[in-house]
Design a protein around this nucleic acid. Structure first.
Lengths: 241, 241
DNA sequence: CGCGATTTGTGCGTGCGTTCACAAACGCAT
DNA sequence: ATGCGTTTGTGAACGCACGCACAAATCGCG
Protein backbone atom coordinates (compact mmCIF):
# COMPACT_ATOMS: atom_id res chain seq x y z
CA UNK A 1 0.00 0.00 0.00
CA UNK A 2 2.23 2.81 -1.14
CA UNK A 3 1.00 6.32 -1.88
CA UNK A 4 0.31 5.23 -5.44
CA UNK A 5 -3.21 6.57 -5.27
CA UNK A 6 -2.12 10.18 -4.97
CA UNK A 7 -1.69 10.83 -8.66
CA UNK A 8 -4.58 12.80 -10.14
CA UNK A 9 -7.05 13.50 -7.33
CA UNK A 10 -4.86 14.11 -4.31
CA UNK A 11 -7.91 14.85 -2.15
CA UNK A 12 -10.41 11.99 -2.18
CA UNK A 13 -13.18 14.11 -0.62
CA UNK A 14 -14.11 13.31 2.97
CA UNK A 15 -17.80 14.07 3.24
CA UNK A 16 -18.18 12.25 6.54
CA UNK A 17 -15.24 13.15 8.74
CA UNK A 18 -16.32 13.46 12.40
CA UNK A 19 -16.39 17.11 13.33
CA UNK A 20 -14.35 16.45 16.45
CA UNK A 21 -11.65 14.90 14.29
CA UNK A 22 -11.60 17.89 11.94
CA UNK A 23 -11.10 20.18 14.90
CA UNK A 24 -8.01 18.22 15.96
CA UNK A 25 -6.33 17.82 12.59
CA UNK A 26 -4.84 21.34 12.64
CA UNK A 27 -3.28 20.54 16.00
CA UNK A 28 -1.70 17.38 14.61
CA UNK A 29 -0.44 19.36 11.67
CA UNK A 30 1.25 21.90 13.90
CA UNK A 31 2.84 19.16 15.99
CA UNK A 32 4.08 17.43 12.84
CA UNK A 33 5.74 20.59 11.59
CA UNK A 34 7.51 20.96 14.92
CA UNK A 35 8.69 17.36 14.75
CA UNK A 36 9.87 17.80 11.17
CA UNK A 37 11.96 20.82 12.20
CA UNK A 38 13.54 18.72 14.93
CA UNK A 39 14.67 16.24 12.28
CA UNK A 40 12.24 13.39 12.91
CA UNK A 41 11.49 11.34 9.81
CA UNK A 42 8.95 9.09 11.47
CA UNK A 43 6.95 9.34 14.66
CA UNK A 44 4.86 6.88 16.66
CA UNK A 45 1.27 7.58 17.56
CA UNK A 46 2.44 7.88 21.14
CA UNK A 47 5.00 10.51 20.28
CA UNK A 48 2.72 12.53 18.04
CA UNK A 49 -0.09 12.35 20.56
CA UNK A 50 2.18 13.75 23.24
CA UNK A 51 3.26 16.59 20.97
CA UNK A 52 -0.35 17.41 20.16
CA UNK A 53 -1.57 17.04 23.72
CA UNK A 54 -4.04 14.21 23.16
CA UNK A 55 -4.53 10.52 23.87
CA UNK A 56 -2.70 8.15 21.50
CA UNK A 57 -5.79 6.00 20.88
CA UNK A 58 -7.77 9.04 19.86
CA UNK A 59 -5.01 10.12 17.52
CA UNK A 60 -4.85 6.73 15.82
CA UNK A 61 -8.61 6.66 15.31
CA UNK A 62 -8.55 10.19 13.94
CA UNK A 63 -5.80 9.37 11.46
CA UNK A 64 -7.44 6.09 10.48
CA UNK A 65 -10.29 8.14 9.03
CA UNK A 66 -7.89 9.60 6.49
CA UNK A 67 -6.62 6.20 5.40
CA UNK A 68 -3.70 3.99 6.36
CA UNK A 69 -0.67 6.21 6.30
CA UNK A 70 1.23 4.52 9.10
CA UNK A 71 3.51 1.50 9.16
CA UNK A 72 2.96 -1.04 11.91
CA UNK A 73 6.01 -1.54 14.04
CA UNK A 74 7.45 1.77 12.83
CA UNK A 75 5.05 4.67 13.03
CA UNK A 76 3.99 7.47 10.70
CA UNK A 77 6.09 9.11 8.01
CA UNK A 78 6.15 12.72 9.11
CA UNK A 79 6.44 14.33 5.68
CA UNK A 80 3.78 12.11 4.14
CA UNK A 81 1.34 12.74 6.96
CA UNK A 82 1.83 16.49 6.66
CA UNK A 83 1.00 16.30 2.97
CA UNK A 84 -2.10 14.23 3.58
CA UNK A 85 -3.53 16.38 6.37
CA UNK A 86 -2.90 19.52 4.38
CA UNK A 87 -4.73 17.98 1.44
CA UNK A 88 -7.70 17.05 3.59
CA UNK A 89 -7.87 20.51 5.15
CA UNK A 90 -7.73 22.08 1.71
CA UNK A 91 -4.49 23.91 2.45
CA UNK A 92 -2.89 22.82 -0.79
CA UNK A 93 -4.15 26.00 -2.35
CA UNK A 94 -2.96 28.98 -0.32
CA UNK A 95 -6.19 30.56 0.93
CA UNK A 96 -6.66 34.28 1.02
CA UNK A 97 -8.63 36.09 3.72
CA UNK A 98 -10.17 39.52 4.10
CA UNK A 99 -9.98 41.30 7.43
CA UNK A 100 -12.77 43.74 8.28
CA UNK A 101 -12.51 46.13 11.21
CA UNK A 102 -9.13 47.71 11.74
CA UNK A 103 -9.26 48.50 15.44
CA UNK A 104 -7.03 47.15 18.17
CA UNK A 105 -7.52 43.51 17.33
CA UNK A 106 -7.60 44.06 13.58
CA UNK A 107 -4.21 45.74 13.71
CA UNK A 108 -2.78 42.82 15.63
CA UNK A 109 -4.14 40.20 13.26
CA UNK A 110 -3.04 42.15 10.20
CA UNK A 111 0.51 42.14 11.53
CA UNK A 112 0.43 38.60 12.85
CA UNK A 113 2.98 36.46 11.06
CA UNK A 114 1.48 33.16 12.14
CA UNK A 115 -0.98 33.03 9.27
CA UNK A 116 1.30 32.87 6.27
CA UNK A 117 3.27 29.99 7.78
CA UNK A 118 0.06 28.02 8.34
CA UNK A 119 -1.44 28.25 4.87
CA UNK A 120 -3.16 31.62 4.82
CA UNK A 121 -2.40 35.10 3.65
CA UNK A 122 -4.26 38.26 4.57
CA UNK A 123 -5.07 39.72 1.16
CA UNK A 124 -7.07 42.82 2.06
CA UNK A 125 -8.02 45.07 4.98
CA UNK A 126 -11.30 46.98 5.28
CA UNK A 127 -12.87 49.50 7.58
CA UNK A 128 -15.92 51.74 7.48
CA UNK A 129 -14.33 54.73 9.20
CA UNK A 130 -12.69 57.21 6.88
CA UNK A 131 -10.10 57.82 9.55
CA UNK A 132 -8.66 54.32 9.11
CA UNK A 133 -8.96 54.08 5.34
CA UNK A 134 -5.66 54.64 3.60
CA UNK A 135 -3.54 53.59 6.54
CA UNK A 136 -0.69 51.30 5.62
CA UNK A 137 -0.15 48.11 7.68
CA UNK A 138 2.68 45.87 6.59
CA UNK A 139 2.44 45.84 2.83
CA UNK A 140 -1.31 46.38 2.73
CA UNK A 141 -3.41 49.51 2.68
CA UNK A 142 -6.75 49.74 4.48
CA UNK A 143 -9.61 50.13 2.01
CA UNK A 144 -13.15 51.32 2.50
CA UNK A 145 -15.73 48.60 2.96
CA UNK A 146 -17.61 49.74 -0.12
CA UNK A 147 -14.82 48.18 -2.16
CA UNK A 148 -15.38 44.81 -0.49
CA UNK A 149 -17.28 43.01 -3.25
CA UNK A 150 -14.92 44.20 -5.92
CA UNK A 151 -11.76 43.15 -4.07
CA UNK A 152 -13.17 39.80 -2.92
CA UNK A 153 -13.89 38.89 -6.52
CA UNK A 154 -10.55 40.14 -7.80
CA UNK A 155 -8.41 38.43 -5.14
CA UNK A 156 -10.48 35.25 -4.93
CA UNK A 157 -11.07 35.67 -1.22
CA UNK A 158 -13.07 32.88 0.43
CA UNK A 159 -12.70 33.62 4.15
CA UNK A 160 -13.70 36.78 5.99
CA UNK A 161 -12.55 37.78 9.45
CA UNK A 162 -14.72 40.20 11.45
CA UNK A 163 -13.00 42.30 14.11
CA UNK A 164 -15.48 45.15 14.26
CA UNK A 165 -17.50 46.33 17.26
CA UNK A 166 -20.69 44.37 17.95
CA UNK A 167 -23.06 46.90 16.41
CA UNK A 168 -21.38 46.63 13.00
CA UNK A 169 -20.78 42.88 12.91
CA UNK A 170 -24.07 41.71 11.41
CA UNK A 171 -23.94 44.38 8.73
CA UNK A 172 -20.41 43.39 7.80
CA UNK A 173 -21.40 39.73 7.73
CA UNK A 174 -24.22 40.51 5.32
CA UNK A 175 -21.86 42.35 3.02
CA UNK A 176 -19.29 39.57 3.16
CA UNK A 177 -21.93 37.02 2.23
CA UNK A 178 -23.23 39.26 -0.55
CA UNK A 179 -19.70 39.53 -1.87
CA UNK A 180 -19.47 35.74 -2.11
CA UNK A 181 -17.58 34.85 1.05
CA UNK A 182 -18.73 31.49 2.42
CA UNK A 183 -16.66 31.21 5.61
CA UNK A 184 -16.51 33.74 8.42
CA UNK A 185 -14.38 33.95 11.54
CA UNK A 186 -16.17 36.25 13.96
CA UNK A 187 -14.41 37.98 16.87
CA UNK A 188 -17.36 40.21 17.73
CA UNK A 189 -19.25 38.94 20.78
CA UNK A 190 -22.61 38.38 19.12
CA UNK A 191 -24.49 35.79 17.09
CA UNK A 192 -24.44 36.21 13.34
CA UNK A 193 -27.33 35.25 11.11
CA UNK A 194 -26.14 33.85 7.79
CA UNK A 195 -27.83 31.90 5.01
CA UNK A 196 -27.36 28.12 4.75
CA UNK A 197 -24.12 27.12 3.12
CA UNK A 198 -22.13 29.77 4.96
CA UNK A 199 -19.97 28.66 7.88
CA UNK A 200 -19.37 30.84 10.89
CA UNK A 201 -16.89 30.21 13.66
CA UNK A 202 -16.80 32.45 16.67
CA UNK A 203 -13.91 33.38 18.92
CA UNK A 204 -14.80 35.26 22.08
CA UNK A 205 -11.92 36.02 24.40
CA UNK A 206 -14.18 36.94 27.31
CA UNK A 207 -15.92 33.60 27.04
CA UNK A 208 -12.63 31.76 27.36
CA UNK A 209 -11.76 33.74 30.45
CA UNK A 210 -15.17 33.17 32.02
CA UNK A 211 -14.78 29.42 31.57
CA UNK A 212 -11.45 29.67 33.35
CA UNK A 213 -13.12 31.77 36.00
CA UNK A 214 -15.65 29.01 36.65
CA UNK A 215 -12.94 26.43 37.27
CA UNK A 216 -11.05 28.92 39.38
CA UNK A 217 -14.18 29.51 41.43
CA UNK A 218 -14.78 25.79 41.76
CA UNK A 219 -11.24 25.12 42.86
CA UNK A 220 -11.55 27.80 45.51
CA UNK A 221 -14.76 26.28 46.84
CA UNK A 222 -13.61 22.68 46.98
CA UNK A 223 -10.26 23.61 48.44
CA UNK A 224 -11.74 25.02 51.61
CA UNK A 225 -15.13 23.47 52.23
CA UNK A 226 -14.19 22.99 55.87
CA UNK A 227 -12.71 25.83 57.94
CA UNK A 228 -10.33 23.33 59.53
CA UNK A 229 -6.82 23.00 58.09
CA UNK A 230 -7.57 19.53 56.63
CA UNK A 231 -4.14 17.95 57.10
CA UNK A 232 -4.30 15.32 54.31
CA UNK A 233 -4.22 17.79 51.44
CA UNK A 234 -4.37 16.86 47.76
CA UNK A 235 -7.31 19.13 46.99
CA UNK A 236 -7.08 20.44 43.44
CA UNK A 237 -7.15 17.98 40.59
CA UNK A 238 -6.55 18.38 36.90
CA UNK A 239 -9.56 19.29 34.80
CA UNK A 240 -8.24 18.27 31.43
CA UNK A 241 -8.38 20.28 28.24
CA UNK B 1 -39.82 29.04 45.91
CA UNK B 2 -38.44 32.49 46.01
CA UNK B 3 -34.74 33.22 46.00
CA UNK B 4 -34.80 32.79 49.78
CA UNK B 5 -31.81 30.51 49.68
CA UNK B 6 -29.47 33.21 48.46
CA UNK B 7 -28.74 34.72 51.84
CA UNK B 8 -25.39 33.66 53.19
CA UNK B 9 -23.81 31.36 50.60
CA UNK B 10 -24.81 32.92 47.30
CA UNK B 11 -22.85 30.29 45.35
CA UNK B 12 -23.95 26.75 46.26
CA UNK B 13 -20.92 25.12 44.64
CA UNK B 14 -21.54 23.16 41.46
CA UNK B 15 -18.96 20.41 41.44
CA UNK B 16 -20.70 18.44 38.70
CA UNK B 17 -21.79 20.85 36.01
CA UNK B 18 -21.43 19.31 32.54
CA UNK B 19 -18.44 20.86 30.82
CA UNK B 20 -20.50 21.55 27.71
CA UNK B 21 -22.93 23.53 29.83
CA UNK B 22 -20.17 25.56 31.43
CA UNK B 23 -18.89 26.48 27.99
CA UNK B 24 -22.29 27.85 27.03
CA UNK B 25 -23.08 29.80 30.20
CA UNK B 26 -20.93 32.79 29.16
CA UNK B 27 -22.86 32.96 25.91
CA UNK B 28 -26.16 33.04 27.76
CA UNK B 29 -24.79 35.73 30.02
CA UNK B 30 -23.83 37.92 27.09
CA UNK B 31 -27.24 37.45 25.48
CA UNK B 32 -28.93 38.34 28.76
CA UNK B 33 -26.97 41.56 29.06
CA UNK B 34 -28.04 42.50 25.56
CA UNK B 35 -31.68 41.77 26.38
CA UNK B 36 -31.45 43.76 29.61
CA UNK B 37 -30.15 46.78 27.70
CA UNK B 38 -33.10 46.48 25.34
CA UNK B 39 -35.43 46.77 28.31
CA UNK B 40 -36.63 43.18 28.62
CA UNK B 41 -37.56 42.23 32.17
CA UNK B 42 -38.31 38.62 31.37
CA UNK B 43 -37.45 36.35 28.47
CA UNK B 44 -38.67 32.95 27.34
CA UNK B 45 -36.32 30.06 26.75
CA UNK B 46 -37.14 30.38 23.09
CA UNK B 47 -36.17 34.04 23.00
CA UNK B 48 -33.00 33.61 24.99
CA UNK B 49 -32.00 30.59 22.95
CA UNK B 50 -32.35 32.61 19.75
CA UNK B 51 -30.25 35.42 21.18
CA UNK B 52 -27.56 32.96 22.21
CA UNK B 53 -27.68 30.96 19.00
CA UNK B 54 -28.67 27.60 20.51
CA UNK B 55 -31.61 25.23 20.70
CA UNK B 56 -34.24 26.12 23.31
CA UNK B 57 -34.38 22.63 24.78
CA UNK B 58 -30.63 22.66 25.29
CA UNK B 59 -30.85 26.04 26.97
CA UNK B 60 -33.55 24.88 29.37
CA UNK B 61 -31.59 21.80 30.31
CA UNK B 62 -28.48 23.87 30.88
CA UNK B 63 -30.29 26.33 33.12
CA UNK B 64 -32.04 23.56 35.00
CA UNK B 65 -28.64 22.46 36.29
CA UNK B 66 -28.35 25.76 38.13
CA UNK B 67 -31.74 25.38 39.80
CA UNK B 68 -35.24 26.54 39.00
CA UNK B 69 -34.96 30.21 38.19
CA UNK B 70 -37.74 30.36 35.64
CA UNK B 71 -41.49 30.76 36.00
CA UNK B 72 -43.71 28.45 33.96
CA UNK B 73 -45.98 30.31 31.66
CA UNK B 74 -43.83 33.43 31.92
CA UNK B 75 -40.15 32.80 31.35
CA UNK B 76 -36.94 33.80 33.09
CA UNK B 77 -36.34 36.97 35.06
CA UNK B 78 -33.47 38.57 33.20
CA UNK B 79 -31.85 40.36 36.12
CA UNK B 80 -32.11 37.36 38.42
CA UNK B 81 -30.67 35.00 35.85
CA UNK B 82 -27.73 37.33 35.23
CA UNK B 83 -26.98 37.36 38.94
CA UNK B 84 -27.18 33.59 39.20
CA UNK B 85 -24.99 32.83 36.20
CA UNK B 86 -22.42 35.35 37.33
CA UNK B 87 -22.38 33.71 40.74
CA UNK B 88 -21.86 30.25 39.22
CA UNK B 89 -19.06 31.49 36.98
CA UNK B 90 -17.39 33.14 39.91
CA UNK B 91 -17.66 36.60 38.41
CA UNK B 92 -19.05 38.12 41.60
CA UNK B 93 -15.52 38.99 42.56
CA UNK B 94 -13.95 41.03 39.77
CA UNK B 95 -11.07 38.84 38.62
CA UNK B 96 -7.71 40.29 37.76
CA UNK B 97 -5.50 38.96 34.99
CA UNK B 98 -1.85 39.30 34.06
CA UNK B 99 -0.88 39.60 30.41
CA UNK B 100 2.54 38.29 29.41
CA UNK B 101 4.06 39.06 26.01
CA UNK B 102 3.48 42.58 24.74
CA UNK B 103 3.76 42.05 21.01
CA UNK B 104 1.12 42.65 18.39
CA UNK B 105 -1.56 40.60 20.07
CA UNK B 106 -0.59 41.63 23.58
CA UNK B 107 -1.01 45.27 22.68
CA UNK B 108 -4.45 44.59 21.27
CA UNK B 109 -5.64 42.67 24.32
CA UNK B 110 -4.21 45.24 26.72
CA UNK B 111 -6.25 47.91 25.00
CA UNK B 112 -9.34 45.78 24.49
CA UNK B 113 -12.28 47.24 26.39
CA UNK B 114 -14.36 44.10 26.24
CA UNK B 115 -12.80 42.61 29.35
CA UNK B 116 -13.80 45.11 32.01
CA UNK B 117 -17.43 44.96 30.94
CA UNK B 118 -17.44 41.17 31.22
CA UNK B 119 -16.02 40.79 34.71
CA UNK B 120 -12.28 41.05 34.24
CA UNK B 121 -9.63 43.69 34.52
CA UNK B 122 -6.12 43.50 33.17
CA UNK B 123 -4.05 44.31 36.23
CA UNK B 124 -0.51 43.99 34.93
CA UNK B 125 1.52 43.67 31.72
CA UNK B 126 4.83 41.83 31.42
CA UNK B 127 7.51 41.25 28.82
CA UNK B 128 11.01 39.87 28.81
CA UNK B 129 12.45 42.32 26.30
CA UNK B 130 13.94 45.44 27.79
CA UNK B 131 12.71 47.33 24.76
CA UNK B 132 9.08 46.89 25.77
CA UNK B 133 9.52 47.34 29.51
CA UNK B 134 8.43 50.76 30.66
CA UNK B 135 6.06 51.36 27.78
CA UNK B 136 2.73 52.81 28.83
CA UNK B 137 -0.46 51.19 27.47
CA UNK B 138 -3.73 52.68 28.66
CA UNK B 139 -3.15 53.29 32.35
CA UNK B 140 -0.68 50.44 32.79
CA UNK B 141 3.08 50.28 32.41
CA UNK B 142 4.82 47.20 31.01
CA UNK B 143 6.95 45.54 33.68
CA UNK B 144 9.80 43.08 33.38
CA UNK B 145 8.85 39.46 33.84
CA UNK B 146 11.18 39.13 36.81
CA UNK B 147 8.64 41.13 38.79
CA UNK B 148 5.91 38.60 38.00
CA UNK B 149 5.74 36.71 41.30
CA UNK B 150 5.82 39.87 43.32
CA UNK B 151 3.03 41.58 41.37
CA UNK B 152 0.85 38.47 41.18
CA UNK B 153 0.89 38.21 44.94
CA UNK B 154 0.31 41.91 45.49
CA UNK B 155 -2.56 42.25 43.03
CA UNK B 156 -4.17 38.89 43.80
CA UNK B 157 -3.94 37.79 40.18
CA UNK B 158 -5.41 34.36 39.43
CA UNK B 159 -5.45 34.21 35.63
CA UNK B 160 -2.50 34.54 33.27
CA UNK B 161 -2.70 35.24 29.55
CA UNK B 162 0.24 34.19 27.37
CA UNK B 163 0.74 36.11 24.13
CA UNK B 164 4.44 35.40 23.66
CA UNK B 165 6.13 33.65 20.74
CA UNK B 166 6.11 29.85 20.90
CA UNK B 167 9.67 29.47 22.13
CA UNK B 168 8.98 31.49 25.28
CA UNK B 169 5.51 30.14 26.11
CA UNK B 170 6.49 27.14 28.23
CA UNK B 171 9.00 29.16 30.21
CA UNK B 172 6.38 31.84 30.90
CA UNK B 173 3.85 29.20 31.90
CA UNK B 174 6.32 27.77 34.39
CA UNK B 175 6.87 31.17 35.93
CA UNK B 176 3.15 31.89 36.10
CA UNK B 177 2.56 28.61 37.88
CA UNK B 178 5.45 29.25 40.23
CA UNK B 179 3.95 32.63 41.03
CA UNK B 180 0.70 30.97 42.06
CA UNK B 181 -1.44 31.41 38.96
CA UNK B 182 -3.80 28.45 38.52
CA UNK B 183 -5.54 29.36 35.24
CA UNK B 184 -3.84 30.14 31.93
CA UNK B 185 -5.19 31.33 28.62
CA UNK B 186 -2.61 30.44 25.97
CA UNK B 187 -2.45 32.14 22.58
CA UNK B 188 0.88 30.59 21.61
CA UNK B 189 0.45 27.68 19.17
CA UNK B 190 1.94 24.95 21.34
CA UNK B 191 0.93 22.61 24.12
CA UNK B 192 1.84 23.64 27.64
CA UNK B 193 2.87 21.23 30.37
CA UNK B 194 1.47 22.26 33.72
CA UNK B 195 1.07 20.49 37.05
CA UNK B 196 -2.31 19.05 38.05
CA UNK B 197 -4.69 21.61 39.45
CA UNK B 198 -3.75 24.20 36.85
CA UNK B 199 -6.18 24.81 34.00
CA UNK B 200 -5.04 25.75 30.53
CA UNK B 201 -7.25 26.89 27.69
CA UNK B 202 -5.77 27.42 24.26
CA UNK B 203 -6.82 29.81 21.54
CA UNK B 204 -5.16 29.29 18.17
CA UNK B 205 -6.32 31.59 15.40
CA UNK B 206 -4.73 29.51 12.66
CA UNK B 207 -6.56 26.42 13.88
CA UNK B 208 -9.91 28.18 13.55
CA UNK B 209 -9.07 29.22 10.03
CA UNK B 210 -7.94 25.74 9.08
CA UNK B 211 -11.22 24.30 10.28
CA UNK B 212 -13.01 26.82 8.08
CA UNK B 213 -10.68 25.87 5.27
CA UNK B 214 -11.73 22.24 5.55
CA UNK B 215 -15.41 23.08 5.18
CA UNK B 216 -14.57 25.45 2.34
CA UNK B 217 -12.66 22.67 0.64
CA UNK B 218 -15.49 20.21 1.21
CA UNK B 219 -18.08 22.61 -0.15
CA UNK B 220 -16.00 23.12 -3.27
CA UNK B 221 -15.71 19.36 -3.80
CA UNK B 222 -19.38 18.49 -3.29
CA UNK B 223 -20.56 21.45 -5.34
CA UNK B 224 -18.93 20.17 -8.51
CA UNK B 225 -18.41 16.43 -8.25
CA UNK B 226 -19.59 16.04 -11.85
CA UNK B 227 -18.11 18.20 -14.63
CA UNK B 228 -21.63 18.57 -16.04
CA UNK B 229 -23.69 21.66 -15.08
CA UNK B 230 -26.03 19.61 -12.84
CA UNK B 231 -29.25 21.54 -13.41
CA UNK B 232 -31.04 20.71 -10.15
CA UNK B 233 -28.68 22.65 -7.89
CA UNK B 234 -29.04 22.98 -4.12
CA UNK B 235 -25.49 21.92 -3.38
CA UNK B 236 -24.17 23.63 -0.25
CA UNK B 237 -25.91 22.95 3.03
CA UNK B 238 -25.50 24.49 6.43
CA UNK B 239 -22.91 22.88 8.66
CA UNK B 240 -24.12 24.22 11.96
CA UNK B 241 -21.98 25.76 14.63
C1' DC C 1 -63.30 30.12 40.87
C1' DG C 2 -62.27 27.51 36.94
C1' DC C 3 -60.46 27.18 32.31
C1' DG C 4 -57.34 27.72 28.58
C1' DA C 5 -53.04 29.43 26.89
C1' DT C 6 -48.29 29.50 27.68
C1' DT C 7 -43.84 28.03 29.18
C1' DT C 8 -40.69 25.55 32.18
C1' DG C 9 -38.42 21.36 33.77
C1' DT C 10 -37.20 16.69 32.59
C1' DG C 11 -37.48 11.51 31.41
C1' DC C 12 -36.11 8.98 27.57
C1' DG C 13 -34.31 7.42 23.23
C1' DT C 14 -30.59 8.18 20.01
C1' DG C 15 -26.25 9.30 18.14
C1' DC C 16 -21.60 10.80 18.66
C1' DG C 17 -17.18 10.63 20.79
C1' DT C 18 -13.83 8.47 23.68
C1' DT C 19 -11.35 4.69 25.53
C1' DC C 20 -9.88 -0.04 26.02
C1' DA C 21 -7.86 -3.95 24.36
C1' DC C 22 -6.28 -6.96 20.93
C1' DA C 23 -5.33 -9.06 16.44
C1' DA C 24 -2.85 -8.11 12.26
C1' DA C 25 1.23 -6.28 10.15
C1' DC C 26 5.88 -4.84 9.96
C1' DG C 27 11.10 -4.65 10.78
C1' DC C 28 15.01 -6.79 12.49
C1' DA C 29 18.12 -9.99 14.39
C1' DT C 30 19.55 -14.49 14.43
C1' DA D 1 13.52 -18.33 6.89
C1' DT D 2 11.74 -17.89 11.42
C1' DG D 3 10.61 -15.77 15.60
C1' DC D 4 10.31 -11.74 18.56
C1' DG D 5 9.35 -7.10 19.88
C1' DT D 6 6.97 -3.07 18.35
C1' DT D 7 3.23 -0.35 16.58
C1' DT D 8 -0.83 0.37 13.86
C1' DG D 9 -5.73 -0.09 12.87
C1' DT D 10 -10.17 -1.24 14.67
C1' DG D 11 -14.09 -3.81 16.92
C1' DA D 12 -16.67 -3.25 21.04
C1' DA D 13 -18.10 -1.17 25.33
C1' DC D 14 -18.91 2.84 27.69
C1' DG D 15 -20.34 7.50 28.75
C1' DC D 16 -21.81 12.00 27.56
C1' DA D 17 -24.62 15.15 25.18
C1' DC D 18 -28.37 16.41 22.37
C1' DG D 19 -33.18 16.78 21.07
C1' DC D 20 -37.92 15.29 21.38
C1' DA D 21 -42.00 15.40 23.54
C1' DC D 22 -44.87 15.79 27.40
C1' DA D 23 -46.45 16.47 32.22
C1' DA D 24 -46.53 19.99 35.70
C1' DA D 25 -46.92 24.68 36.87
C1' DT D 26 -48.18 29.40 36.37
C1' DC D 27 -50.77 33.48 34.68
C1' DG D 28 -54.70 35.96 32.90
C1' DC D 29 -59.40 36.26 31.92
C1' DG D 30 -64.12 35.50 32.02
Amino acid sequence: MSQQRTDSSASPAFPDLPEATVARLPEYLRALHTLAEQGHDTVSSEGLAAAAGVNSAKLRKDLSHLGSYGTRGVGYDVALLITQIEAVLGLSQHRTVALVGIGNLGHALAGYGGFASRGFSVAALFDAERAQVGERIGDLVVRHIDELAEVVAAEGISIGVITTPVHAAQHVADRLVAAGVTSILNFAPCVLAVPPGVDVRKVDLAVEMQILSFHEHRKALTALPVPRPAPNGRAGEAIGT
